[in-house]
């Protein structure tokens, strides 16, 4: 397990527990008691720390390398997953994965950013930063889902669209714009879940949805705290201030009306108990999908468009 800087006291206790566990071969009863005592302390500390994470700490949790990613969710929630590759114009972008499958028995199209889990896969998926081909694939799959009356589930987890020469040459801006347009044009339900980082245009490209769910410690923002600090504060030391000012936490975004529902995370964040997190997101998706499915396609589309037009009318309330 990787520990974040503010989790240091927790990490130290966990290390102590681990040490005691190795000793407990010598079957002394008071070691077990000591382990229990420390475990309670760890839980209390985790609860206290995670109850009042600052926006910058949440940013670190949202980017945690052990946080469950797209492929983890798909492996546990989607049966018969059949990935579909390519934008039919230039190439396939592994930073966005998409495909057909079954969610709780129902056919779905699943699309999302994949960041990768080790050096090799991170490089292969370009750390979840998509090129135009990724967004064009997303659009193609959304249009296909629309034709077959299959709902679309998206999982958002990206620092942002890839800022490279090749991406610009092939029309990154246009690809994102068309992908947003495709989301807003669907006559089937589209449900987006922000599972980690929701980085700017690269995120909303697949998140202009009927229902936007967001994990408790995820972030969603127009710019990264680092980028904002370097532009507005003109230094890199104000990252924490920028994270604060941007209101990028699920709690603030819910108040602003930019997301629809917050999905709680297990004690210590999604990375402390990935399976519990994946299962609980599954419940939230199922409930919201059940609500959207009976609606007429035209009504869904009109309602989605009106929803976005109405966002932001009330400020932080």
């Amino acid at each position: 397990m990787n520990f974040l800087d503010f989790e240091k006291p927790i990490a130290e206790l966990e290390a102590k527990i681990e040490e005691l566990r190795h000793l407990s071969n010598s079957d002394q009863i008071n070691i077990a008691e000591e382990i229990n005592r420390l475990q309670t302390k760890v839980d209390r500390l985790l609860r206290a720390t995670y109850a009042k994470l600052t926006p910058w700490q949440k940013t670190q949790v949202a980017r945690h390398p052990d946080r469950p990613h797209f492929s983890d969710y798909v492996a546990r929630l989607i049966a018969e997953f059949t990935p579909l590759a390519g934008d039919r114009a230039f190439g396939d972008d592994p930073a966005i994965i998409g495909g057909l499958g079954r969610f709780r028995g129902r056919s779905v199209m699943v699309i999302g950013h994949e960041k990768g889990h080790d050096t090799d896969s991170r490089v292969r998926h370009n750390f979840g930063m998509a090129r135009p081909e990724g967004y064009r694939k997303a659009r193609r799959l959304m249009e296909m889902a629309d034709r077959f009356g299959i709902p679309v589930l998206t999982l958002v987890d990206t620092a942002g669209a890839y800022p490279g020469v090749d991406a610009e040459a092939r029309g990154q801006a246009e690809a994102i714009a068309r992908s947003i347009e495709a989301c807003l044009d669907l006559r089937v339900p589209i449900l987006a879940s922000i599972i980690g980082e929701g980085g700017s245009g690269g995120a909303i490209a697949i998140a202009a949805a009927d229902c936007v769910l967001m994990l408790e410690h995820s972030i969603y923002s127009v710019i990264s705290p680092e980028g904002c600090a370097s532009i507005l504060w003109r230094n890199g030391d104000s990252t924490k201030d920028a994270a604060e000012a941007l209101r990028l936490t699920a709690q603030d975004l819910h108040k602003l009306g930019a997301i629809d529902e917050i999905v709680p995370e297990p004690l210590g964040g999604a990375h402390h108990n990935p399976t519990a997190q994946i299962d609980s997101l599954g419940e939230y998706i199922e409930r919201n999908l059940a609500e959207l499915l009976p609606r007429d396609g035209g009504v869904l589309r009109a309602r989605r468009r009106e929803k976005f037009l109405a966002i932001g009318k009330n400020g932080l309330g």
């Binding site: 994102i176 714009a177 947003i180 347009e181 989301c183 807003l184 700017s200 245009g201 995120a203 909303i204 202009a208 969603y220 923002s221 127009v222 710019i223 904002c228 532009i231 507005l232 000012a245 941007l246 209101r247 990028l248 975004l253 602003l256 930019a258 468009r305 976005f308 037009l309 966002i311 932001g312």
Partner: peptide, 16 residues
């Protein structure tokens, strides 16, 4: 940037 995620929402609003 000073309008945070609400400025990001303009991408969807202006598209509509």
């Amino acid at each position: 940037m000073q309008e945070g995620v609400l400025s990001l929402m303009q991408l969807a609003r202006t598209t509509v």
